[in-house]
Amino acid sequence: METAVLVILGGLTLGGMYALSAIGLSLIWGALGMLNMAHGALLAIGSYACFAIFTYLGISLIFAVPLAMIAGGIVGLAIYVVIVRHMFRHPSFETNIIIATIGLAIVSENLILRFFGAYPYKQPLSIQGGFRIGEIFVPYQNLIILACSSVLVAIVGVLLQNTRMGRAIRATAMNKDAALLMGVPIGRVYAQVMVFSGCLAAVSGIMLSTITTLSPTMGDSPMIKAFIIVAVAGLGNVYGAFYVAIGLGVLEAVFQYGIGVRFAFPALLLLVIVSLIWRPYGFFGSKTVVRN
């Protein structure tokens, strides 16, 4: 009983972190039609930014986290301005952008390595303590991660659903030409989406680093999980990505408990592939949303 609750709690925490980075990826895919292989790098940049702002600049964590989010957003914007913007015109944009962001991921990983070294720092942001329900100890840390990501996902959801900017982002994702004809400056929409995605990735990275440690490659494995989540949810489907993230997080925790850490990810991957063969556009995806 206790183990079941603990496993599920751990899974929900994982799912919460995955959700934030998966939503960022999904937004970019939907609006720009690009697969961002540098998303893991954004996770790392966010958490190192938080670490550096607190440790070297001595700024309180209450400000360090938002500042790190801003840093993530700025890097996202920079990726758009310096790289993505110039590649749209090429007929094989979809292929080329994957390659370009692979290059970017290597550059960023190595820059972090240059500046911070490979030492596995601990993220200063961590909440001690917890409470007990009967025999079970529930750390505050996990609850806060879950709460933060739920709140952020809800904010993104409201933003997309109910604001003029959010509608413009969704419109751009559905049909670029039609969005233009409504007067939507799609260049600006692209930039906004990249900023959002960068912010969300930064938070996701900070959360991740509070339960593990900092490392230049810390974002790689969560990025791959975010990829899988986005694929299962249907590319470009933001809400689906949240549910799938939570589901896969729990599933991963159960697998880790049941068949060991080593085989949890391959088993998950196998499950995902089988389900994709069964539903090629993902569980929440539809042919129409995906750009063709």
Partner: peptide, 20 residues
């Protein structure tokens, strides 16, 4: 699957092989 899913899944497969 569609092209982009091939990229996603093959990348995940490579990672899984590495971890294994």
């Amino acid at each position: 699957l569609r092209g982009i899913y091939v990229a996603l899944l093959t990348f995940a497969i490579a990672q899984a092989a590495f971890l294994l």
